[in-house]
Amino acid sequence: MGASAGGVQALTALFLRIPADTRATFLVVLHVPPYEPSTLHVVFSRATRMRVVAAMDGVPQEVGTVYVASPGRHLMVDDRGVSLAGGLARIAMAFWCRL
């Protein structure tokens, strides 16, 4: 799920309504400045009994868990689990450097 910084309220309302025993995994990416520390995982953990964590690179994906991306980062999922990717600015820079 993705949202701008104003989406925190909507995501909080959503997590309040999702049963704690759901068999789903949630990946949350919000458009927030990369230079600010984030406590969004704490905010969302107050709205649900599901496990909510600040996503870390290479952790296995677990059912019933909410993974929150670090500011300025994207979340990717592959066979190894959850991974962090650079933000759009980094992706664009990598593209332009290859030209």
Rank of each mutant, 00 (worst) to 15 (best):
T12L: 00
F15W: 01
G72L: 14
A54W: 06
L30V: 01
R73G: 00
L11E: 03
S70C: 04
A89K: 10
F44N: 03
L40I: 10
A54K: 11
L27E: 06
L75K: 07
F26I: 01
V66W: 02
R98E: 11
G58D: 02
F95W: 09
R90M: 11
A69Q: 07
A5D: 09
V66L: 07
V28L: 12
D21T: 07
F44E: 07
M93K: 11
A94K: 12
G7T: 07
T65F: 11
T48Q: 08
H41Q: 09
V28T: 09
L88Y: 14
F44P: 03
L99Y: 07
R49G: 13
D21C: 01
A89N: 12
A3K: 14
E62S: 03
L14N: 02
A55D: 11
V82Y: 04
L11T: 01
V8L: 05
Y35C: 12
M1E: 07
T25D: 02
G6T: 02
H74Y: 14
H74R: 13
G72C: 15
M56R: 14
Y67R: 14
S4Y: 06
A24G: 08
S70W: 03
D21R: 05
V66R: 03
Y35W: 15
G7M: 03
V28Y: 04
R23C: 00
T65I: 07
V32I: 15
P19V: 00
L27Q: 03
T48V: 07
T12N: 00
L11M: 11
A20M: 00
V77D: 08
V82W: 11
A10G: 14
V59R: 02
S83F: 13
T65V: 15
V52S: 04
R17D: 07
R98N: 09
M1L: 15
Q61N: 06
L84T: 10
L11A: 06
A13D: 14
M93W: 04
V43I: 15
M93R: 14
P60N: 00
R80T: 13
V82S: 07
R23Y: 01
D21L: 01
S83P: 00
V77G: 08
F44T: 03
G87R: 06
G6P: 02
D57M: 04
V29T: 15
G81K: 08
R90K: 09
M93D: 10
G2H: 08
M56P: 00
A94S: 15
H41M: 00
L11C: 03
G72R: 13
V68A: 04
T22Y: 01
M1N: 06
A55P: 08
